[in-house]
Design a binder for these strands. Structure first.
Lengths: 208, 208, 208, 208
DNA sequence: TCGTAATCGAGACGGTACGTCTCGTCTTGAT
DNA sequence: ATCAAGACGAGACGTACCGTCTCGATTACGA
């Protein structure tokens, strides 16, 4: 019987949804506009119209706030779904077309750098990092489907391939390479090339 | 030219090499033991037995100190050279065998995370990041040689492959995956696979 | 009588005597052990096992709690009555013998200091201050009796004499004079000296 | 030889007199206008245009600031000197005429209550309390002179008499008695009464 | 050889943010 | 209506560092 479970319930006021919302919204706004290193608890509290203690009561660290923003989809508005048209490379490039504009937008590189900084400092963010851009769920699933369709070798490490693409983006962003889009596409096509004699000619345009 | 005129008439003592050394050594020590976010200028000054102003005089930011430590090889003692035995995959795995122990050592993951945090915050570190683990110089060169030897497709994007490997490591470290070594090896073998008929399965040994 | 009318028509439970008691007891205990400035409403509530609101409902300020503790005799257990043996000075010294041990006990000085701090901050305590050590009631009455008996001049300002004795004690305690007992006795004997021929040295019994 | 004492001198910047001055001035101003319990370090720092750490660097507690204000004469502008006209009671009443207006001024009672609160909380203030109103120095000295002149009995406890007068004032102020001036004068006259008929002439030799 | 000028260790300074504590009010469900 | 519990906005606490500045001592030229 779990009726008396009901009796275990604590009396007293309940967590304020309005406060939670205001805090996460303020966090997302300040994170995007100021960056992770200028993100302060006091600033969030002021922006949200909330006491500091209300933040500390529910989130142990700055990173936990960012992690919640990620989970709630408050940092990236877009949908990172990967289509399945049957053409694996084209579909992944479609995903790239979703991601790249974010990075090329003004402040986009800084946004990802901030996210990396948060992930480096706080494991709560790190846990959500690869998931946050759709890598974990959407991209890996599409690659797995690619194996089923015979477009990718059966033993291909799909998770690592997703991490590799994300990781390449991160390295480029950390290196402040703003013109890396084409090379990223090249890499994806190379990594996902189907095996053909001579290791398969890349498309003529790729081969340059 | 009178650019150097400005410096010609200078009296007084010259920059103290001892101070520079003590500062960078203290920086490296504290960075390794405390991490980037607990690294403070005041802490470095005290540890180095130096005035704060002596640091501010020569380095504009915390990151610049880290960048100098990287350049001086004060953060990673090892040599990240990649051998050239003719077997590309084996050589790259040799490089992996140099890198992985660093990450598996106690605090190794935290060290790389700190480095990433520094790179995210400060472009001076970001610029040296991929270079710092031998990726830029040694790994890319070896991949280029692989193209020459016919072990890699002519159009293979060597720099991006290096970044992809490093990026995968970074993503794994940021995600706090401590057991990712094998999957990293798998990825490298997959990415560097030579084209074979039907593109797979991977070589029998790879296939487990 | 309609004083208790106020309680007759009320719904719900009536004021909890148990809560009142626990709160005042907790207040007294914490006041004595921690001092007035470390006395907090939250601390009292926790110590008493009571909600904060229950305190705020019935007492407007910290000081009101202390004032109630004074009224209930929860701070000083002893009886500050002044005997009337016919010898005024001896009787007042008897009262001193009641008061002084309290101040000489460990923490006794701190206790009176805390009481003074409370009185300085809150008029509710200030109103009970001179009353609390028996000055207002017992000491003044004894002095008045002394006038009747001819041991004190008819116009002697009995209330002010009581205040002067208490005030001297307070000044000594505020000045952290731990050895002021004898000088206090001297003062009392001097202030209450009856005019006698030669008038000094003080009366033979005093001079001992 | 103490020449090498000179070498023990610390290098580096010296304490800023301007900061010290601004801090004490702000402390005095806020103490007088807001009272001790509303006096905050942050408020002082803001008022003085100073960092909090500059206060904490030189003063351990709020009370130490008040004590320094007392020492510098920043709380009471007036001079508490006691004249010596030969008439002891008149002279002491002259001192009363200096003190009473301070207490009768608007906020004067609150000022002394604040001072008492500070003294109760902090020994640094307590040590200066009786000194601060001229009791220790001027009043006691005048009473001592009164003994020399035969207006006071030789064994009179002059320090305690000063404390008694001050203490009476404190008790009156703590009890919020705003009309106590006359009774205070009565007390002083009674305590310092020379022997007269109806309470006994002091001895001829004392009266000298 | 003696200024002159830059560097050095030390640390005070005006600030900002930290994470904790308590305030007094408000809300909840139980009695 | 009162109670225990405790969330809430507010704001002070005392600490840690920031980056700038000032100090006296210490070099190392150039006049």
């Amino acid at each position: 019987m779990n009726e008396h479970r009901a009796n275990e319930h604590r009396n007293g006021p309940v967590r304020s949804a309005a406060a939670r919302d205001a805090i996460l919204e303020a966090t997302a706004r300040l994170f995007q506009s100021e960056g992770y290193d200028h993100l302060t608890i006091e600033g969030i509290a002021k922006e949200a119209g909330v006491g500091k203690q209300t933040i500390y009561r529910w989130w142990p660290t700055r990173g936990a706030l960012i992690a919640d923003c990620l989970s709630d989809g408050r940092l990236f508005a877009v949908d990172f779904a990967v289509p399945d048209t049957g053409d694996l490379v084209a579909d992944v490039e479609q995903w790239l077309d979703t991601v790249i504009p974010i990075l090329d937008a003004p402040g986009g590189g800084a946004l990802l750098r901030s996210l990396v900084a948060a992930a480096a400092e706080d494991s709560a963010v790190g846990d959500h990092l690869s998931e946050s851009l759709g890598v974990e769920r959407h991209l890996s699933e599409r690659l797995t489907a690619g194996i089923r369709d015979g477009q990718l070798a059966p033993g291909a490490p799909v998770d690592e391939l997703g991490h590799a693409i994300l990781g390449t983006i991160i390295v480029q962003v950390l290196s402040r390479q703003d013109d890396a889009t084409d090379r990223l596409r090249q890499l994806v096509r190379f990594m996902l090339r189907s095996g053909s004699p001579q290791n398969g000619p890349l498309s003529p345009t790729d081969a340059k």
